[in-house]
């Protein structure tokens, strides 16, 4: 009783509304997904939903294809985002603030509106919608999430590391590959976490930018649930959750390695 009073008196109590909210709308639904995934429509315990997935080459193909698209998007975001982050971190503060504004500005527009605008743009330029448009749209939507964490690590990086490398005889390219890149790995990793995971589960962008021609895993889940195949849909969601969990475990591993000083030579 006393403890409860203390809790309400402390500032911790302010987290209570959110705690209740997340239990009702996050934890319970997640548990429901697990329950649905391992039961059939009659409510009996079964693994049939999972065997159905692995027996269906179409579903597995969609799954693998989604991962492929997500990887392409992530790599694209790194390749385009890193130079942008580099330029931002090197430019004088007033100038870079304007540039960051320009990069963040599109994020104020709703993702669906932006995607619809992309469709209109492709139409206007008479470019075909399809795989190319899909990857373009994904990169366009997610690149700010890659630029910002990389910019942040580059910005905070002590300039004396770069000077020390130059002093020891490294040319500009060597300074980048041997010092700047390894030291900005934490930024790249959090960028990957913020791009790769959401891209696996998108379906709206895929639907709009490919005129429903290309199915991503998110779309498959959505279709099954729309068709009232709740148990199968829940199993697919669980598989995707498992993949996301696996990548994040891999990411934290990578994080530790970079701290411990892996051999990047």
């Amino acid at each position: 009783m006393n403890k409860l009073r203390l809790f309400f008196a402390s500032r911790k109590s302010w987290t209570l509304p959110y705690l209740i909210f997340s239990v009702v709308f996050v934890v319970i639904p997640l548990l429901l997904i697990v329950v649905y995934a391992f039961t059939d429509e009659a409510g009996n315990l079964t693994l049939a939903n999972f065997s159905k997935f692995f027996a269906h080459p179409e579903a597995v193909n969609t799954f693998v294809y989604s991962i492929g698209i997500a990887i392409l998007t992530t790599v694209g975001c790194i390749l385009l985002g890193y130079p942008a982050a580099w330029i931002l971190s090197r430019s004088s503060s007033g100038y870079s603030k304007t540039l960051i504004m320009l990069f963040i500005l599109p994020m104020w527009v709703n993702i669906l509106v932006r995607t619809l605008a992309t469709v209109a743009l492709f139409d206007f330029a008479r470019l075909p919608l399809g795989e190319g448009a899909l990857i373009f749209g994904m990169i366009y939507n997610f690149i700010p999430f890659m630029i910002y964490p990389i910019y942040d690590t580059l910005q905070k990086m002590d300039k004396s590391y770069i000077e020390a490398a130059q002093d020891l005889g490294a040319s500009s390219a060597q300074v980048f590959w041997k010092v700047v890149l390894p030291l900005s790995m934490p930024g790249i990793i959090s960028g990957v976490m913020m791009v790769f995971m959401p891209t696996i589960s998108t379906f709206a962008i895929a639907e709009l930018l490919t005129m429903n021609n290309i199915k991503l895993f998110g779309t498959t889940i959505q279709e099954n649930i729309n068709n009232s195949l709740w148990n199968y849909g829940a199993a697919l969601s669980l598989i995707m959750l498992f993949l996301i969990a696996a990548t994040s475990v891999f990411n934290t591993d990578g994080n530790d390695n970079s701290k411990r000083g892996g051999e990047p030579w």
Binding site: A170, L183, P264
Partner: peptide, 30 residues
Amino acid sequence: HKRPVNTVFQKYALFPHLNVYDNIAFGLKL
């Protein structure tokens, strides 16, 4: 990087992603 001088920095500026050996060997590896 083309000057015959080397610097010891005020805050050391040791590369945090390399161990002691690799830090010292940095210039020699180049």
